[in-house]
């Protein structure tokens, strides 16, 4: 993946929350707001935004409804003259695909606008849809992220891209879907090491409505993925999507309940990992609100990977590495 030739970093951005981040893992929302502010990127509020709507159910049930509800969210950002930033692969899939389909297909656009006119809105197609990981890579760069780090993390990380961040590859234009590297580069910018593991690009199991309707199937995929991560002896999982996040975090509880299988691998959204490296405490980033709590992980956060930042004078960071599970 290469950087954009044109400079899109000057364009306005709005924050699209979706459902799972604000309503199940608010730590991801909190971390996103904190790290973006620290990096000097302001986010406009997208008042009145709804569910993206969920691609697994809505795209499966009725494409027209899926496009229409998604286009309303896009209109909200259009009226702020802002590109729309998602922190979720599912929202990214719905919003980016809808934006593209409506820009390319005049018939689909006319159909959606006929419905939107009833609520006084119109899709014009003047904004872009961004994902926080893709945005940070292209518009900020791993080097600049690295420059902002004050608490280099000494962690072995299992990076989970998730499916809809990079696929369909032809539409996402983020390079190889089989062997991408941009997310790993951003993770390594925090000092952490992205560790190779078996079938790294496999799905978490949650998507397509599988988690809600065929949970055994979804969990079987999750179990396999967790086994591969565990074999690589990682300290935590880092994802780009609250739904993958939920599947790994809540899924570990479900696997323990159903099969008595314990993994106990902490799960962080990239915004939370970056937040730690920028000196925020696990409590400020809501990491202590995850289902999986691993005291060894919190101790590990106190170890600083200074050697990965030679010649840099680094700050102290707040409240990290006191050891033990935060209360």
């Amino acid at each position: 993946m290469t950087k954009n030739i044109t400079d899109n970093s000057k364009r306005n951005l709005s924050l699209f929350l979706g459902c799972i981040a604000p309503n199940r893992y608010p730590g991801i929302e909190s971390a996103t707001r904190k790290v973006m502010e620290r990096l000097g990127i302001s986010l406009k509020e997208l008042e009145g935004a709804s569910c993206c709507p969920a691609p697994g159910v809505f795209q499966s049930f009725d494409k027209k409804t899926w496009l229409t509800l998604a286009s309303r969210n896009l209109c909200l950002s259009e009226s702020l003259d802002a590109d729309i930033l998602t922190v979720c692969n599912g929202c990214y899939a719905t919003l980016a695909d809808t934006n593209r389909i409506l820009k390319e297909d005049p018939e689909a656009k006319a159909g959606v606008n006929e419905k939107l006119s009833e609520i006084g809105k119109e899709f014009s197609g003047k904004i872009e849809v961004r994902h926080i990981v893709e945005y940070l890579f292209r518009e900020v760069s791993p080097e600049k992220v690295r420059d902002a780090v004050i608490h280099p993390l000494d962690l072995r990380v299992a990076v989970h891209y998730g499916c809809h961040l990079i696929k369909p590859a032809h539409e996402r234009k983020l390079g190889s879907a089989e062997n991408p590297s941009f997310f790993d580069e951003l993770v390594e910018a925090t000092g952490a090491r992205s560790v190779e593991y078996e079938d790294k690009m496999a799905c978490c199991g949650a998507g397509g409505g599988a988690r809600s309707a065929v949970q055994d199937v979804a969990l079987a995929l999750t179990e396999k993925k967790l086994e591969h991560m565990q074999s690589a002896n990682v300290d935590c999982i880092v994802d780009a999507c609250p739904f993958c996040h939920l599947q790994f975090d809540q899924g570990q509880i479900e696997l323990a309940d159903r099969l008595g299988k314990e993994f106990n691998i902490p799960v962080l959204h990239y915004s939370q990992l970056l937040g730690l490296a920028l000196g925020y405490s696990p409590e400020e980033l809501g990491i202590h609100l995850n289902r999986i709590q691993n005291s060894e992980f919190y101790t590990k956060l106190g170890e600083r990977a200074e050697s990965r930042f030679p010649g840099r004078k680094l700050g102290a960071g707040a409240g990290i590495g006191k050891g033990g599970v935060p209360t």
Binding site: S50, T65, T68
Partner: peptide, 30 residues
Amino acid sequence: ELELDELPGTVHSCPEALEEVRHLIKACGF
């Protein structure tokens, strides 16, 4: 606890926005 608004600034804080969503759902026959 995270010092966020108790309700996110989405349809959850905006009854008119929820009405718009419901209207579109109906208009699509969903």
